[in-house]
């Protein structure tokens, strides 16, 4: 099939960018969306033009590296799917496809579709861990964790850090990302001891990094490749309010 692409091209962080038109023939339905971009880049490279820079790595939906806005949707038209898991059978012959980088003030564009998501690392650095030295751990089965709690913690811990939640949010809020880590750790007995400090620090860092507020539109949950529930955001709020009240 044939597709018409409108791709955001931007040479560097401080350069002006624009949408550039490309068209591709002979795209098969079995192709993944990223294979399609590879095909375009192969063509551009052979012509001596700069290929489109885009983020990708594992191509099986787990590393969180890929992520672009496709026709105005984070990771494309399917819900809960990463860009690399999207296939061309989701498009029709003759479709025009807009491909833009994830946009947020906290995700500056590096080049073309590549954005800088290091703000996420900063949030984790401010408290997204359990303070434990290698060697300190007690026997693993000494502290039982109820099945349901472990499952709930896993649901939150499954976050791949792709940034789709920020990209789809009208406020560019990192609430889902931050909340997932806070609840993952707050649920576990090992993580409880520093949960108060953690939530205050992480929420502050989230603000400092320039992310917006959560308006509970729940768009993030719909686009999240791991289907992380917005209830984790409520849980983060609970932890935050508790910390605010109990803080000495």
């Amino acid at each position: 099939m044939q597709v018409f692409l409108k791709i955001w091209r931007q040479a560097g962080p401080s350069d002006a960018g624009k949408l550039v038109d490309y068209s591709l023939d002979n795209i098969s339905e079995e192709m993944s969306f990223l294979d399609m971009l590879d095909t375009l880049n192969d063509m551009l490279t052979r012509k001596g033009e700069m290929p489109v820079e885009f983020d990708h790595d594992c191509r099986e939906g787990i590393c969180g590296q890929c992520g672009v806005m496709i026709n105005g949707r984070a990771h494309g038209p399917l819900k809960n799917t990463t860009t690399c898991q999207l296939h061309m059978r989701s498009f029709k012959n003759g479709d025009t496809i807009y491909i833009e980088p994830f946009r947020a003030s906290s995700f500056p564009i590096k080049r073309d579709l590549k954005v800088d998501r290091s703000a996420f690392d900063k949030i984790i650095q401010s408290g997204g861990f359990i303070t434990e030295r290698t060697g300190q751990a007690p026997e693993a089965n000494d502290i039982p964790i109820p099945f349901e709690t472990a499952e709930e913690a896993f649901d939150a811990a499954a976050c791949i850090g792709c940034g789709a939640c920020v990209a789809v949010c009208k406020n560019s809020s990192a609430a889902l990302f931050t909340a997932a880590k806070i609840t993952h750790l707050a649920l576990l007995p090992q993580g409880k001891y520093e949960s108060q400090k953690r939530v205050l620090n992480m929420v502050n860092t989230m603000d400092e990094q320039g992310f917006g507020h959560c308006s509970n539109t729940e768009a993030c949950e719909a686009e999240c490749p791991q289907q992380i529930s917005v209830l984790h955001i409520a849980r983060m709020n609970y932890e935050f309010n508790k910390a605010l009240v109990l803080k000495k």
């Binding site: 861990f129 359990i130 964790i145």
Partner: peptide, 12 residues
């Protein structure tokens, strides 16, 4: 032991 102490949510 180490992973559990770090908060790795192994199946239970």
């Amino acid at each position: 032991d180490q992973a559990v102490a770090q908060g790795v949510p192994f199946a239970r």
